[in-house]
Design a protein around this nucleic acid. Structure first.
Length: 164
DNA sequence: TCAGTTATTCATG
DNA sequence: CATGAATAACTGA
């Protein structure tokens, strides 16, 4: 598990890679740019690691600019249960600037009654932004929740031009 | 295995 | 508009 930090205008994101791909991507804890430096960037344990890092940084930059990333690094979602992986995969099908309700996501994975479970799966999503759990809103027009804080969810939606 | 929990939703009053 | 039940799946013990 290689852990690095990726600088961005929003702060330093944390990314974790396994031999299979990107396993985690976390929002900066505090908004003001912290001074953490890259860890593990020197020794690439896995083949293609350096390229994944570059792809991740690039995809992240694209996403923060409100556009859908061209190329994503491989994602290692093997940590999650089968159900969670289905949800996370479904989330990636939502185009930038669009939103879905928890019920709609439940419907797309052919589990129309699992709306609540979908919410749980979103909360367990380890790869924020690249797996766009922020594009899922409750049906009543509220915001729902966000693992790194609702501030981030609102901001990410604004970056994509979504009004709440 | 099972009780407790959840980033929901719908029907009621 | 507030409340409560229903509902599928995760988590921890």
């Amino acid at each position: 598990m290689e852990k690095i930090f990726i600088d961005s205008p929003e702060g330093a994101f944390t990314a974790c890679f396994t031999e299979r791909g990107l396993a985690r991507l976390e929002c900066p804890a505090n908004r003001r740019g912290n001074t953490l430096t890259a860890i593990g960037a020197g020794h690439s344990k896995f083949p293609g690691f350096a390229r994944w890092k570059k792809l991740t940084a690039k995809a992240l930059a694209e996403a923060l600019a409100g556009r859908a990333p061209r190329n994503l690094p491989p994602l290692d979602l093997s940590k999650g249960s089968a159900f969670q992986q289905q949800v996370w995969t479904a989330l990636q099908q939502i185009p930038a600037g669009k939103t879905q309700t928890y019920a709609q996501v439940a419907a797309t994975i052919r589990r129309p009654l699992a709306t609540r479970a979908v919410g749980s799966a979103c909360g367990a999503n380890p790869v924020l932004i690249l797996v766009p759990c922020h594009r899922v809103l409750p049906k009543n027009g509220g915001l729902g929740g966000f693992s790194s804080g609702l501030k981030w969810k609102r901001r990410l939606l604004e970056l994509e031009g979504v009004r709440v």
